[in-house]
Design a protein around this nucleic acid. Structure first.
Length: 482
RNA sequence: UCCGGAGUGGCGCAAUGGUAGCGCAAUCGGCUGUUAACCGAUGGGUUACAAGUUCGAAUCUUGUCUCCGGAGCCA
């Protein structure tokens, strides 16, 4: 590194505090007065040459959506030597004057005094042309797609959402908890696990025809986490309110625009919360995130509203202005049975709500987010708290129009005997859950929690149709390149 | 995994049994305080892969792979 202090900041850090001479484009755009001496560094989006003896460069450094316009006079010292190399995709450093622009389309522009090229990009080979590309194509060049307008905007929004998730919970006294990535606990009902092993797959040790996991690294069968919930409960039973925000893995062969094999999940877990408290928190949480995004990512959100989904702004506003509809599972079933809508799947008490049912309820009946709660115990995992009726559990799903399920949660069963019975009913081995059961033996407390799929949130907020376009490097069946 | 659709120059698409075209991008030239710049010219494809039917296949058949949409599983 030739510039060792470039990235060092004193706290508090913000865009304007910098040790290097470089100014970020976002900061420059906030400046409406002329500046005699600035340096901007970034990637060239397009170059237009004028026979008047100068070139226009559109420069982007990812700090914001907009490009900066740079004017380079062809008589500039040394410019003729590098002019050919300054093409779409190349990376340059420009030093000059931030000045009012005589042209139309921008009020300010950078009038170059010196242009340095860091790296050129052969226009015959550079895969990102200055034209529109399909998202499918961009996925094939995932290492270059961050340089597109859409991906840049997605990543800035994603970053802000992550930041405000931490802010939301920390402001409410929740403790950020890192639950294990490698685990033996299969959070029942959550999905298939990726196995983790150091055994030689060409000669797996076996006893009586069964794999001998005692010889494996951890002395037992292990996998990548499908949920941090069970471990989260452990710490909620000591710190009262915790949340996890980490990677989650599901080895399901899911090929949809809403599923990833590796995704990020937010899982709060709260002692002394009942299901109502849980639903209150979920609603407040989503509204907090949406309102924060509208306030702090307005330029990117304007882009999504214009180019990706023209209704996204109105949708988010409408969600903020209305209460989520809370409806018993049983009432939802009644509503569906009464409706004249033709469904592919029949609705019967005891069945899971199909995507078409969820969509009908949130998009046509209520036209806003809904929370369906008190599901039949038979279709929900063992850890959910059994209601007095003995037939339903205190589960809740938050369903968003278009997207579907974004949050799944429940009040947890805190009664040892009831929990044990449910584990046995579901043919699970209670010994596997001994430490989880211990939470009910020693100082048990009512508690609740939920899980929110982070990428689904980003998808919903940006209006992006495919979940693979809201994560830097998507992992789906047959895809782990990059 | 199931159902449906698709795979053709760098990208987006056309050609449904008979010499593979267009737009954008690229290259060259012209024009211009330009800005999705504009105008003209040029180059670029054994039609995903394998086998088959046919005088002849991008087009029909079978298989494989991949992508997209929907469903299931879920977040």
């Amino acid at each position: 590194m030739t510039t060792p202090f470039r990235c060092l900041h004193l706290y508090p850090c913000n865009d304007n505090m910098k040790k290097s001479k470089r100014t970020k484009i976002k900061v420059l755009f906030a400046q409406s007065v002329e500046l005699e001496e600035v340096t901007v560094e970034g990637w060239v989006r397009t170059r237009r040459d004028s026979k008047g003896g100068f070139s226009f460069l559109e420069l982007n450094d990812g700090s914001c959506l907009k490009n900066i316009q740079v004017i380079v006079d062809h008589t500039l010292d040394g410019f003729r030597d590098i002019q050919e190399e300054i093409t779409t995709g190349s990376c340059v450093s420009v030093q000059g004057k931030w000045a009012t622009s005589p042209g139309k389309g921008q009020s300010m522009e950078l009038q170059a005094r010196q242009v340095k090229i860091y790296g050129s990009a052969d226009p015959e080979k550079y895969p990102l042309q200055k034209k529109r590309h399909s998202f499918e194509y961009l996925r094939e060049i995932a290492h270059l797609r961050p340089r597109t307008n859409t991906m840049g905007a997605v990543m800035r929004v994603r970053n802000r959402l992550a930041y405000s998730i931490h802010r939301f919970f920390n402001e409410r006294g929740f403790v950020y908890l890192n639950t294990p990535i490698i685990t033996t606990s299969d959070c029942e009902g959550a999905g298939e696990m990726f196995q983790v092993t150091t055994l030689d797959l060409d000669k797996v040790p076996k006893t009586d025809g069964q794999v001998d996991y005692s010889q494996d690294f951890f002395g037992g069968k292990t996998g990548l986490t499908v949920s941090g919930q069970l471990e989260g409960e452990v710490f909620a039973m000591a710190l009262s309110e915790i949340y996890t925000f980490g990677p989650t893995f599901r080895a399901e062969n899911s090929n949809t625009s809403r599923h990833l094999a590796e995704f990020w999940m937010v899982e709060p877990e709260m002692a002394f919360y009942d299901l109502d408290d849980n639903m209150d928190l979920a609603e407040e949480f989503i509204k907090f995130l949406l309102s924060d995004i509208l306030e702090h990512c307005s330029e990117d959100m304007e882009f999504f509203n214009q180019r990706i989904d023209k209704t996204i702004h109105a949708t988010l506003k409408q969600i903020l202005d209305n209460e989520f509809e809370r409806i018993h599972y049983s009432d939802a079933i009644h509503l569906l049975q009464k409706s004249k809508e033709k469904f592919v799947y029949a609705t019967e008490w005891g069945c899971n709500l199909q995507a078409e049912h969820e969509r009908y309820l949130s998009e046509k009946v209520f036209k806003k987010p809904i929370i369906v709660f008190n599901y039949p115990e038979a279709i929900k995992p063992f850890y959910m708290k059994l209601n007095e009726d003995g037939e339903t559990v205190r589960a809740m799903d938050v369903l968003l129009p278009k997207l579907g399920e974004i949050i799944g949660g429940s009040q947890r069963e805190e009664n040892y005997e009831v929990l044990l019975k449910r584990i046995e009913q579901k043919d699970l081995n209670s010994e596997d859950y001994w430490w989880y059961m211990d939470l009910r033996r020693f100082g048990s407390a009512p508690h609740s929690g939920f899980g929110l799929g982070f990428e689904r949130l980003v998808q919903f907020v940006t209006g992006m149709e495919n979940i693979r376009d809201v994560i830097p490097f998507p992992r789906t069946p047959k895809h782990a390149t990059f």
